[in-house]
Design a protein around this nucleic acid. Sequence first.
DNA 1: CGAACTATCGAGAATGGTTCTCGATAAGTG
DNA 2: CACTTATCGAGAACCATTCTCGATAGTTCG
Lengths: 144, 144
Amino acid sequence: MKRPRPPRTESEATLFAGTRHRMTTQRRQVISALRSARRYLTAQQLHERLRLKRPRIGLATVYRTLEALRELGLVSTSSPRLGEAAYVWCTSEHHHHAICSRCGRVDDVPCKAGRNYERILSRGLGFALQGHQLEFFGICARCS
Amino acid sequence: MKRPRPPRTESEATLFAGTRHRMTTQRRQVISALRSARRYLTAQQLHERLRLKRPRIGLATVYRTLEALRELGLVSTSSPRLGEAAYVWCTSEHHHHAICSRCGRVDDVPCKAGRNYERILSRGLGFALQGHQLEFFGICARCS
DNA sequence: CGAACTATCGAGAATGGTTCTCGATAAGTG
DNA sequence: CACTTATCGAGAACCATTCTCGATAGTTCG
């Protein structure tokens, strides 16, 4: 009788199912680090953290993994205030982000904006809405 | 008796009133080009347009002017999809943008989102809201 | 108006985040 | 296990943006 695999590995292994992508040790570590961070991290910040456990991991690998995850909708990129891009782990289908200005923590916020604007956009501007993106800035519970 | 100055120059000249900034010919042209574009333009796109009328204008001048205008709240920067930053002219105090996916046109949209989320953010997350940014993507009236 | 002060300009170099290249390695398949 | 090929690591290349510096031109003040 086969023993079931540990759930952590199982869930990560299925992320690339159905794609050409292969699950590698490096990618597992990128995913794990970003998932547990709960905040926006730049590619270089992520690279530094990963080198603590795997000193030879390359910066290009981090970029390649982040790009692959972004295409799959598993991470979303920040709107960088003129500098480097930042990435955050992104689970549910459609939601928004509340970003703490002090500590950088990112919380998910359910979407309630779409329908309120559909009328304004379609009747007022003749604009056919396809999607939207909303970010909140403020101070999180821990910091205040 | 003094003749009143032309209104176009007048309105632009007052943009930097109260600051250390000087209104120069180059800045007037950057402002005019961006204002009439009604769309996001990158610094390099803006530079190309300006060189048609003033071949010797420098790219650094465009960047410097855009940065000064951004500090004054007169332009807002896009959330670049991993590439170069883009800038759009920005008049009224607080509003959002509807961006046409086909032609790139940008229309202003009044804000109605803030209050809807204040309850969710403060009661649900303990998040003290300071600001937000909302972008709509779709097809504008001219394109559909 | 004209001199003095200094912010801004233009051109090119420098910076630094991101992508590309290529030989080596390792994941998935039969 | 052998084979195919996606991925890796290291460094070079790329390119948007910023910096440097001598020259130019707003602005102020007499």
